[in-house]
Design a protein around this nucleic acid. Structure first.
Lengths: 208, 208
DNA sequence: TGTACATCAGTGAACGCGCGTTCACTGATGTAC
DNA sequence: TGTACATCAGTGAACGCGCGTTCACTGATGTAC
């Protein structure tokens, strides 16, 4: 039980700073433990260098703290994907590849943080659901643009769902690339599996 | 906190019966909660109608109880898949479809029980890993037989991994088909997504 | 056939722990006058 | 410019709870003689 040194008290009027600090600490703890159940309010307070009661100045209870923390993780994913430039003048097929790699990189860098995004109970909250759909909308948009180039008439939402499910499964199977390396499990790596997705789903540029 | 009526004490020499009863109760609790962390030793004892201390006659501790419980769940999946006849004189493409449906049915009937199979820490135990690979081997064998018919020269292990990851992702996305029905999430159903897997992965009979 | 006894299949009380949450409080700091 | 005071940003002790685990035990039952 490592104890973080006490946090310097915020100046007057800057009390909201603690809220962000708590969410950042919670995000780290979620990344470490990979589950909302394993991250206690007290642990978040402790990691932040603050007493458990201080948390109640910013969150109703443990449930709300965790819901907001997962929302924070979603924003981290959204930011990571924003780094991939996909303006309308870019090649959507290249964007798709880069976006897939960025998504995979986020998921594999901190598997616990990725896993927590899909916490079943939290998905029922509108805030979390909307955030999830917003990220998904990036994918749908990209598929739309590839379809436009190829003259593909399939339902882009359906194909985006195919992409999403497949990537999600790859991440689950090959969560930690290091495990695969020194382990006797002969599973393919995430990169290999990822590389076959565009062709299998007909998301490569058609020369005509 | 519902309390199961006390269990009738086993006759002398039949003490092992309790072990199976505990595992069956644990399997149900895992199905209900979908996580090893949420199922306590006391809850398993309670569900079985026995005192917590009785558990220690059959298991070292909570960890071993959970490990054996998950192994029990794996055997339930293995049994469910065994119901699909896939003798060498059957059409492997039909078997593949039926096996996929059986797998999906198992996963969607009790999402919690399915989810628990892939508990990260437990996968490091040889007993669990072997059980997982044994189930996976069914799939590889099926892919082999489809390849034989089609003269397909791809690596069957790799393609089986593609199937596995994709199905796994579909299950995660569409865990509960009822949610999709009355919810505003417009995601495709598991059946729709599943139906597109064989074609996308080149696992349909080639007419030549 | 009767009885002493070892064994089996458990029970019940107790422990220390970390948890979420409540309550009364404290001390620094900005502001009104 | 000095001071009283309201407010802010927290703290610290305490609560009841369920947990994993230990320990000493109990009572039925099969078996040896």
């Amino acid at each position: 039980m490592s104890v973080t040194p006490p946090r310097e008290r915020s100046r007057r009027g800057e009390g909201d700073q603690l809220r962000d600090d708590l969410l950042a600490a919670a995000s780290d703890l979620l990344a470490e433990h990979g589950s909302v159940d394993k991250v206690s309010l007290r642990a978040v307070a402790n990691r932040t260098g603050v007493s458990p009661t201080a948390v109640y100045r910013h969150f109703e209870n443990h449930d709300e703290l965790m819901a907001e923390s997962v929302l924070w993780c979603w924003r981290e994913l959204d930011n990571a994907l924003s780094a991939v430039s996909d303006g309308p003048d870019e090649d959507p097929f290249e964007c798709f590849t880069k976006m897939g790699q960025a998504y995979m990189a986020f998921a594999l860098a901190e598997p616990g943080r990725y896993k927590v995004l899909f916490t079943r109970d939290l998905m029922e909250l509108n805030s979390v659901k909307e955030m999830g759909l917003q990220v998904f909308a990036r994918l749908v948009g990209l598929v739309d643009r590839m379809f436009a180039v190829n003259g593909d008439t399939r339902d882009s939402f359906f194909v985006a769902s195919q992409v999403h499910t497949w990537l999600h499964g790859i991440i689950e199977l090959c969560r930690d690339p290091r495990e695969v390396a020194d382990d006797n499990l002969p599973f393919p790596t995430a990169d290999e599996l990822l590389a076959h997705v565009p062709a299998a789903l007909g998301l490569e540029r058609v020369d005509s």
